[in-house]
């Protein structure tokens, strides 16, 4: 199915998302995120309006031509060959520019810098760790569990009970979604 180069993407099927917060909680647990940081969030639109209410799960979307990487003054982002957008927390100065650039509000800032200022940016790594040695203690501490290196699916998609949250090569994801739409005759 996949063409020359796999490009990893998330997709949340909002016909299936039941707003259970499983992905968000699993993420926080797997990566031992500090209080106040939530790399993946479940949001609900048109809450309470019958027929219109939808929920979906969002985190960093690992954009092509990632805007965050374009604006970072210290160039601390790097984009893996499979399209996962990662960054180096030891280079990051916590300026916040990536947040201003991001269409999804994904970058977050723990208040752990000197004098309680915003510290190094934190965001979803698609469970692919960071620039430190793979599966090292340091990588785990700074970026969380590197499940991709262990050949595992990102934890959020792995725990999604309704299979709403999909992750994988962009083309395979859209093939799955196409199949769902045509078999049910509905969807976006």
């Amino acid at each position: 199915m996949s063409s020359e180069q796999a490009r990893m993407k998330f997709y949340c099927d909002n016909n299936r998302c039941i707003e259970c917060y499983g992905c968000s909680v699993a993420c926080a647990e797997a990566h031992e995120l500090p209080v106040g940081i939530s790399r993946r969030k479940v949001i609900t639109l048109y809450e309470g309006i019958e027929g219109k209410e939808v929920s979906t799960s969002i985190a960093c979307m690992h954009c092509s031509d990632a805007p965050c990487a374009q604006v970072c003054p210290v160039n601390c982002f790097y984009i893996r060959e499979d399209g996962i957008v990662l960054h180096d927390k030891e280079k990051c100065i916590g300026c916040g520019y990536c947040l201003y650039a991001c269409p999804f509000g994904a970058p977050q800032f723990p208040r752990d810098g000197a004098f309680g200022t915003k510290g190094a940016m934190d965001k979803c790594t698609m469970c692919a760790g960071g620039p430190e040695e793979t599966n090292s203690e340091k990588e785990r501490h700074l970026y969380g569990h590197n499940r991709i290196a262990e050949g595992k699916v990102p934890i959020c998609a792995a725990v999604c009970g309704t299979n709403a949250l999909l992750v994988g090569d962009a083309e395979e994801i859209s093939a799955i979604y196409r199949k769902r739409v045509s078999s049910k005759g509905q969807g976006a």
């Binding site: 970072c72 003054p73 210290v74 160039n75 601390c76 180096d88 030891e90 280079k91 990051c92 100065i93 916590g94 300026c95 810098g113 000197a114 004098f115 200022t117």
Partner: peptide, 22 residues
């Protein structure tokens, strides 16, 4: 130093500049 941070390699030097700026 923040604006040209990438030529300074980022990290503690530029972070220090940001703190001093404050």
């Amino acid at each position: 130093m923040i604006i040209f941070g990438k030529y300074l390699g980022g990290g503690s030097l530029v972070l220090g500049a940001r703190y001093l700026h404050g």
